[in-house]
Amino acid sequence: MSYLLRPMRADDADEVLTIYQAGLDSGQASFETRAPDWAAFDTGRLPDHRHVAAGPDGSVLGWIAVSATSARPAYAGVVEHSVYIRPDAQGQGVGTALLAAVIASTEAVGIWTIQSGVFPENTASLALHERAGFRRIGTRQRIARHHGRWRDVILLERRSPTIT
């Protein structure tokens, strides 16, 4: 599959949110059930660490973005990320490329930890993250209800080997 990685732009909003909603509809991506509007999405994610993979026709195949985990200065180097791939683009290296892009952009500004929570049933996401150097920190058991049932989340993190 051919694609180009580039920064996410406001004119990507419709495609980004459609891909987000498709992930939410799968039941394996998040506790959220509805993608936010663009204003909320935009406000909640750090602008310098949002990337898309665009196909030859310019359509968005997937996206990645990070959010601050805390406003406390001690945690300025810790972010949480989300990565979503369009269903017909999954399994073709798009997620790997997007993770590499966000690792590079965050390390370039001194961010030392990227974390994420993944449902245990989302084995493709777990494998993707492990290939990118994320490690399992532990399982947060019955952390919240999703569609009326308790769900566990595996907490993953990647510590930068270059930022000490």
Results as ranks from 00 to 15, higher is better:
residue 29 A to T: 06
residue 32 E to W: 00
residue 32 E to K: 01
residue 32 E to L: 00
residue 34 R to Y: 07
residue 34 R to D: 10
residue 36 P to T: 02
residue 36 P to R: 00
residue 36 P to C: 02
residue 37 D to N: 11
residue 37 D to L: 06
residue 37 D to R: 09
residue 38 W to P: 02
residue 39 A to L: 10
residue 39 A to G: 12
residue 39 A to T: 14
residue 40 A to I: 10
residue 40 A to R: 13
residue 40 A to N: 10
residue 40 A to K: 12
residue 41 F to G: 03
residue 41 F to Q: 00
residue 41 F to D: 02
residue 42 D to K: 09
residue 43 T to K: 15
residue 43 T to C: 14
residue 43 T to S: 15
residue 44 G to H: 09
residue 44 G to D: 08
residue 45 R to L: 12
residue 45 R to T: 13
residue 45 R to F: 12
residue 45 R to G: 06
residue 47 P to D: 03
residue 47 P to C: 06
residue 48 D to Q: 15
residue 48 D to Y: 13
residue 48 D to H: 15
residue 49 H to T: 08
residue 52 V to F: 01
residue 52 V to G: 02
residue 54 A to I: 04
residue 54 A to E: 03
residue 55 G to V: 10
residue 56 P to G: 15
residue 56 P to R: 14
residue 56 P to K: 13
residue 57 D to S: 11
residue 58 G to T: 07
residue 59 S to E: 11
residue 59 S to I: 11
residue 60 V to S: 05
residue 60 V to R: 00
residue 61 L to H: 07
residue 61 L to K: 09
residue 62 G to F: 01
residue 63 W to F: 14
residue 63 W to L: 09
residue 64 I to P: 02
residue 64 I to N: 05
residue 64 I to G: 04
residue 65 A to Q: 02
residue 66 V to F: 03
residue 68 A to Y: 10
residue 68 A to G: 15
residue 69 T to A: 11
residue 69 T to L: 12
residue 70 S to P: 06
residue 70 S to Q: 11
residue 71 A to N: 14
residue 72 R to H: 14
residue 73 P to M: 08
residue 73 P to I: 09
residue 74 A to R: 13
residue 74 A to L: 12
residue 74 A to D: 11
residue 74 A to P: 09
residue 74 A to W: 08
residue 75 Y to G: 14
residue 75 Y to D: 13
residue 75 Y to I: 12
residue 75 Y to W: 13
residue 76 A to H: 13
residue 77 G to P: 05
residue 77 G to K: 08
residue 78 V to I: 15
residue 78 V to F: 10
residue 79 V to A: 11
residue 80 E to S: 13
residue 80 E to W: 05
residue 81 H to T: 10
residue 81 H to V: 08
residue 82 S to P: 05
residue 84 Y to V: 00
residue 85 I to D: 01
residue 85 I to M: 05
residue 86 R to I: 07
residue 87 P to S: 05
residue 88 D to I: 08
residue 89 A to I: 01
residue 89 A to F: 01
residue 89 A to S: 07
residue 90 Q to C: 08
residue 90 Q to W: 04
residue 90 Q to F: 04
residue 90 Q to Y: 06
residue 90 Q to M: 09
residue 91 G to P: 02
residue 91 G to T: 02
residue 92 Q to E: 07
residue 92 Q to K: 14
residue 93 G to Y: 05
residue 93 G to T: 04
residue 93 G to H: 04
residue 93 G to A: 04
residue 95 G to I: 01
residue 96 T to V: 12
residue 96 T to I: 10
residue 97 A to T: 06
residue 98 L to I: 04
residue 98 L to W: 00
residue 100 A to Y: 03
residue 100 A to E: 06
residue 101 A to D: 05
residue 101 A to T: 04
residue 102 V to K: 04
residue 103 I to P: 03
residue 104 A to E: 12
residue 104 A to D: 13
residue 105 S to D: 04
residue 105 S to Q: 03
